[in-house]
């Protein structure tokens, strides 16, 4: 099995994708299962360590994960409910909180929709045709994964800010991109750009073009082929990409922070509001919003696990 890694921010991608430079050369079978069936353990003395060492390794792993990963998550909910459920609900009912939730949903809807459409289009072009420069194109699509969120925001400030390339023109025409919803959406689209395409490309390369060719030879048009043959085959992968894209879109902080301008009730998304409230020592309110985002993360993880199992199953069913 070749190693499959890219500079990415989600688990499945780490395990599913070939290195960005090699995708076109060989599309390795996606690895989707969290943990595969283990080969039967060979006799004890051969393939495992003595009892005490085993115990120490397990204890270290559990302790580390509990302290560094589980505990912060627990702190979020504990702090959110530290003044009781009424204070929690009141914090969420604040107009500022409601505005942030609404803005986050709007921005996520815009960026997920656009990246969904263009992700599918890009995956079609890349996985169903042969052309030179494919590897390079995939590297470019991956680029946002390796750019610091702050820089992802900065590039839009440089384009649309008062001193930016289009700043004067925008001011003259009274168009607001920065410190307004379009800027937040642009920055979010930038950071979530690769998710859908990267979820689909290996899957579609793996599936090849035979079924599409069969459909065409049976008289189907291009769109009929896509909607009746390709789409049903990639629907779980597509959902997977959308799921991760959405989680990142709702949770993005650095890039959005740079372009938002932090106008209360107007350009604050949920993560930005978490920051503001925390810095104002409104811990219950801050963690109440944070708890919603944490719930989103947990739900995403659960759904991701379910989807991975499903993708693993279809793979097994087709394995001939």
């Amino acid at each position: 099995m070749s190693m499959q890694t890219g500079l990415v921010t989600s688990t499945r991608q780490l395990r599913t994708y070939a290195p960005t430079t090699d995708v076109s050369v060989a599309a390795p079978a996606p690895r989707l299962e969290i943990v595969r069936a283990q080969p039967a353990m060979a006799p004890r003395n051969l393939r495992t360590e003595p009892g005490p060492i085993r115990f120490i390794i397990i204890a270290l792993a559990i302790t580390f994960l509990s302290v560094f990963v589980v505990l912060p998550l627990v702190v979020v909910f504990a702090s959110a409910f530290s003044k009781g459920i009424m204070a929690y609900l009141a914090a969420l009912a604040e107009p500022e909180a409601m505005a942030a939730i609404k803005l986050t949903l709007v921005v996520a809807a815009i960026s997920v929709t656009l990246n969904l459409v263009f992700g599918v289009i890009a995956a079609w072009a890349i996985s169903k045709f042969e052309f030179t420069g494919k590897t390079f194109l995939i590297t470019l699509i991956d680029l946002p994964f390796s750019v610091s969120p702050v820089i992802s925001g900065l590039v839009f400030v440089l384009l649309f800010g008062a001193q930016g390339f289009f700043g004067t023109w925008l001011q003259a025409h009274n168009v607001h991109i920065l410190f307004a919803v379009p800027g937040i959406a642009l920055a979010t689209i930038f950071v979530t750009f690769p998710f859908v395409a990267r979820a689909l490309i290996p899957l579609m390369q793996e599936q090849g073009t035979q079924e599409e060719e069969a459909a065409i030879s049976l008289g189907a048009s291009g769109l009929q082929t896509f909607f009746r043959v390709t789409l049903p085959n990639i629907k779980w992968g597509l959902l997977y990409g959308v799921l991760l894209c959405n989680a990142r879109a709702m949770g993005e902080f650095g890039a959005v922070s740079v372009v938002s301008g932090h106008i209360r009730g107007e350009t604050n998304t949920m993560p930005l509001l978490v920051e503001i409230l925390y810095n104002e020592y409104q811990f219950v309110a801050s963690f109440a919003i944070a708890s919603l985002l944490a719930m989103l993360a947990l739900i995403t993880l659960v759904m991701k696990t379910i989807l991975e199992r499903r993708l693993g199953e279809t793979e097994v069913a087709d394995g001939d």
Binding site: S10, L65, V69
Partner: peptide, 24 residues
Amino acid sequence: LFDAIVDIPFALPTAVAGVALTQL
């Protein structure tokens, strides 16, 4: 469960992780 927990730092929005770690 611990296998799934490994993914939390990926999934948790960074601002949430930030305030949680600070509080902790």
